[in-house]
């Protein structure tokens, strides 16, 4: 099982992944880079990052909050 510190850290990671999946700070931004809006590039990168984070979670902390919590 992971440490208490890591339990909270993973919670924070999930919350951040959800909240910034929409780049709120780019609201109204209409810049286009290589044919796609800037916010779409953010989305592409963010989904890659989310996938990486989920993979790490499944390696290190799978079962957190679910197993052994009676």
């Amino acid at each position: 099982m992971v440490s208490t510190y890591e339990r909270y850290a993973w919670g924070l990671v999930f919350v951040v992944l959800v909240v910034f999946a929409v780049p709120w700070f780019l609201w109204g931004d209409a810049r286009v880079i290589r044919g796609l809006p800037v916010w779409l590039w953010w989305h592409v990168g963010w989904m890659g990052l989310a996938s990486l984070a989920f993979w790490l979670f499944s390696r290190r902390a799978w079962g957190l909050w679910i197993e052994g919590t009676t």
Binding site: F14, L17, V18, A21, V22, P37, W39, L40, H43, M47, A50, F54, F57, G63, W65, I66, E67
Partner: peptide
């Protein structure tokens, strides 16, 4: 406008994935 990509991406790619774990894994067990 193409922002629908973002709406569906957030919901299917991130929020649903988290639920896949929180609800799905629990239900599987």
């Amino acid at each position: 406008g193409p922002e629908w990509i973002l709406v569906m991406g957030v919901m299917d790619g991130v929020i649903f994935a988290v639920l896949w774990y929180l609800v799905g894994y629990k239900q599987w067990l």
